[in-house]
Amino acid sequence: MNYRNLPMVPRVVFGNGSFDQLGDILLPQRKSSDAPMIFLVDDIFEGTQLISRIPLICNDQIIFISADEEPKTDQVDLLADRIRDHFNELPSGIVGIGGGTLLDLAKAVAIMLNNKGKSYQYQGWDLVRKPSIYHVGIPTISGTGAEVSRTTVLLGPEKKLGINSDYTTFNQVLLDPDLTKGVSKEQWFYTGMDCFIHCIESLNGTFLNAFSQSYGEKALELCKEVYLEELDPSDSRDKLMMASWHGGMSIAYSQVGVAHAMSYGLSYLLGVRHGIGNCLVFQHLEEFYPEGVAMFNIMKEKHQIALPTGICGALTENDFEIMINVALSLEPLWENALGKEWRKLISPEKLKSIYQKI
């Protein structure tokens, strides 16, 4: 048996107010005044107090990016080219501040600044040849696990798929639960459910092992506390941030499953955001995850979340075929969910019948 030698985030800071240590953390990584730090920041923070707390010196630059759409390969390429063309030297580092979209963009841009070609050429497993430049992840919402994972999920010209590599993982993560204050209730729920669904898929998968189980069980326990119990807001923020971390770790040596595979189809065709896409699919997966779906419905009812309906109501046969092909292309996810004989257990007709309910 050849066990995978997986990377983990080598340095992490956790704590309320820890964002104010960012300047000290970045200082040893600065190469020269001509090699700035580039901060990729969710544009929802433009004009807020958070921006004044970013430790800018010399030629550092903030680039505001909308997180309204899923990150795309051509967006990564444009950002990498813009940074290359603007500075004489490669930046000292890339700092992503935001949710999963900004964190995935930061990881992908850090890779592409040191690797030739286009980012879609690296969508897949272990295709990156050269280390990324130094990059830091600072989540401002909890649930995606993007801060800890070795993948950066991108919408490409032909598929939605991650750049899964040992060079994707952040060099430094800063976890400050205070940064998640002010997240809307719906977004808090959808992104947190991404973590919950990670756990259900990992813990019920054929790839499950003690490594994944230990992280997945802890993340699931924290999700239950946050979404089923009455917690102090500060305690809830702390616990959901750690649930996200553990949920991301739970799939490092495992995989996600049916909900994520089908959610990728929704995102690719319709641009549905990842968290809500997982929820839209997961509610119809009682056959695969009966206990998880039952718990999801209790959480949804408790927090009075009404999922949108009719998303796939006007789709053509060709549209359904595109979504199904994207979903079925994610073979490791299906093998984790259903085993090596998964092709005998799932069919395009089955997937279409689930999509038609959304």
Score class of each variant (00 low, 15 high):
Ala294Asn: 02
Gly143Val: 09
Asp34Arg: 15
Pro157Asp: 03
Arg82Thr: 07
Ser18Phe: 13
Leu26Ala: 02
Val136Leu: 12
Pro91Met: 15
Glu286Trp: 00
Asn114Ile: 06
Ile298Val: 15
Lys357Gln: 03
Glu230Thr: 03
Thr316Lys: 00
Phe19Glu: 07
Phe207Tyr: 14
Ser234Arg: 15
Lys185Val: 13
Gly182Asn: 12
Val272Trp: 01
Gly23Glu: 12
Leu50Asn: 13
Gly247Ser: 14
Leu330Glu: 09
Ser234Asn: 11
Asn209Pro: 06
Thr191Phe: 11
Gly275Arg: 07
Trp334Ile: 03
Asp235Gln: 14
Asp178Thr: 03
Leu351Phe: 04
His274Ser: 05
Thr191Tyr: 13
Gly248Met: 13
Arg84Asn: 03
Leu50Arg: 15
Phe45Gly: 13
Ala80Ile: 02
Phe288Asp: 04
Pro91Ser: 10
Gly205Ala: 11
Trp334Ala: 03
Leu179Lys: 06
Leu27Cys: 05
Lys239Gln: 09
Leu203Tyr: 13
Phe296Leu: 09
Thr309Glu: 07
Ile324Arg: 04
Ser263Leu: 01
Thr169Pro: 04
Phe14Val: 11
Val226Cys: 08
Ile57Cys: 08
Thr144Trp: 04
Glu147Met: 12
Gln187Gly: 00
Gly162Gln: 04
Gln75Thr: 02
Asn325Asp: 15
Pro55Ala: 12
Ile63Met: 11
Ser347His: 07
Asp235Lys: 15
Arg11Thr: 12
Gly93Met: 11
Leu338Phe: 01
Leu328Tyr: 07
Gly182Ile: 10
Leu228Lys: 01
Glu69Tyr: 02
Val9Asn: 06
Gln75Pro: 06
Ala210Asn: 04
Ala306Val: 03
Glu301Ile: 01
Ser119Gln: 04
Lys181Cys: 12
Tyr120Met: 10
Leu338Val: 00
Gln356Met: 05
Asp104Ala: 10
Gly100Cys: 09
Ile200Gln: 10
Arg273Thr: 02
Met295Tyr: 07
Pro10Gln: 08
Gly143Ala: 00
Gly310Tyr: 02
Tyr264Cys: 13
Tyr3Gln: 01
Phe87Thr: 11
Gln172Tyr: 15
Gly137Ser: 10
Ser119Arg: 06
Ala108Pro: 08
Trp188Asp: 15
Gln49Phe: 12
Asp68Arg: 13
Asn209Met: 05
Ser244Gln: 10
Pro290Cys: 06
Leu222Ala: 10
Asp20Met: 09
Phe14Lys: 10
Asp20Tyr: 12
Ala108Ser: 14
Val183Gln: 14
Val272Glu: 08
Phe14His: 12
Leu203Thr: 14
Asn336Tyr: 09
Asp60Trp: 08
Val173Asp: 12
Leu56Cys: 11
Phe288Ser: 02
His246Gly: 09
Ala252Gly: 08
Val256Met: 14
Lys31Trp: 06
Asn278Ser: 07
